[in-house]
Amino acid sequence: WQKVLYKRQPFPDNYVDRSFLEKLRKNIHARKYQYWAVVFESGLVIQQLCSVCVFVVIWWYMDMGLLAPQWLFGAGLISSLIGYVIFDAVESGIGKSQSDQSQWADLKNAVVFLAFTYGFSPVLKTLTESISTDTIYAMSAVMLLGHLIFYDYGANAAIVSSTLSLNMAIFASVCLASRLPCSLHAFVMVTFAIQIFALWPMLQKKLKAQTPHCYMVITLLFAMSALMGLLTVSSVGTVLFALLLVSISCLCPYCLIRLQLFKDNIHGPWDEAEIKEDLSKFLM
């Protein structure tokens, strides 16, 4: 028996040979996940959620007048310096050549940030005066949500765009900063947004790649501090946020591993062809 239709064969039309489905393969690409490994990876999402949470809490403190902008600016500056030193140490730990030029460039970038933000802060202050506060809140919420959605969590998907996510976070921070009472507040707020949305993830990635245990500890500490900060604002929100964090870090990996069992993916010669080889050398 042959699996062809153009030959006349001594079998009835509905005859199915035993070799008919012998090339069927199941779940070739399915991966076996380790529970704790998945929990470790979910640390990125936790971190980003906590960043947004910390940002909103700090903004709330500033808006209420509970936190002086000088304090926040000082704290941000010191933590940035510490972060920069750690970043340097980690980078030199892997043996990359350290040059003065990159430090100069970093300094230049920092000066550009500060100068531009300080120069534009009066403009930012009056920017959304005539727009209603609810509109601003809604816009910021949408933008922060967009930041969380488009953030590069390490997944290889079309929706991921770190540029867009960073821009949305900056947009949201500018919107929120324009609600603050004076231009120094706005300046400090936007600077803080840059630190927490742009610089902090860079350090995180470096830490995660080099020292996983340390990263674990830092993530836990960061989540705890975000919860503590939220607790001073609203207890119900804290509970809900804690539940969210727990569900993301514990429940979701468990669900993923359980659902992996039900995976039933079939492959065979009917699949569309896949080009395995790298054709770029022919294209050159």
């Binding site: 531009f116 900056i170 500018v174 840059i194």
Partner: peptide, 21 residues
């Protein structure tokens, strides 16, 4: 295109300002 951080920051700042004006 992949932009640098400072380009992104200043561009977004200007974008926000222009949009509201």
């Amino acid at each position: 295109c992949s932009y640098d951080l400072d380009q992104l920051y200043i561009g977004t700042l200007l974008f926000t300002i222009l949009l509201f004006l």
